[in-house]
Measured scan of single mutants.
Amino acid sequence: GSMEQGFLPKGWEVRHAPNGRPFFIDHNTKTTTWEDPRLKIPA
Rank of each mutant, 00 (worst) to 15 (best):
G1N: 11
G1A: 13
G1H: 10
S2R: 09
S2F: 13
S2I: 12
M3R: 12
M3Y: 12
M3I: 13
M3Q: 11
M3E: 09
E4W: 15
E4K: 11
Q5N: 13
Q5R: 10
Q5D: 11
Q5L: 15
G6Q: 10
F7W: 14
F7V: 14
F7G: 15
L8Y: 04
P9A: 05
P9N: 05
P9K: 05
P9C: 08
K10W: 10
K10I: 10
K10G: 08
G11T: 01
G11A: 00
G11F: 04
W12R: 02
W12P: 02
E13V: 05
E13Q: 05
E13Y: 06
V14G: 02
V14L: 11
R15P: 01
R15N: 04
R15F: 07
H16F: 15
H16R: 15
H16S: 08
A17P: 05
A17Q: 06
A17G: 09
A17R: 05
A17T: 13
A17E: 07
A17K: 06
A17H: 08
A17D: 13
P18Y: 08
P18D: 07
N19C: 14
N19D: 14
G20K: 05
G20T: 15
G20S: 05
G20I: 00
R21H: 07
R21T: 09
R21L: 07
P22G: 04
P22K: 10
F23Y: 15
F23A: 00
F23T: 04
F24R: 00
I25L: 06
I25W: 07
I25P: 03
I25Q: 03
D26P: 02
H27E: 05
H27G: 05
H27Q: 06
N28M: 06
N28S: 06
T29E: 05
T29N: 09
T29D: 04
T29K: 06
K30P: 00
K30I: 05
K30Y: 07
K30G: 15
T32D: 02
T33Q: 08
T33N: 02
T33Y: 08
T33P: 00
W34M: 05
E35Y: 14
E35F: 15
D36L: 01
D36T: 01
D36F: 04
P37S: 01
R38C: 04
R38A: 03
L39S: 11
L39D: 09
L39W: 10
L39K: 12
L39P: 08
L39V: 10
K40M: 14
I41A: 13
P42Y: 11
P42H: 10
A43H: 10
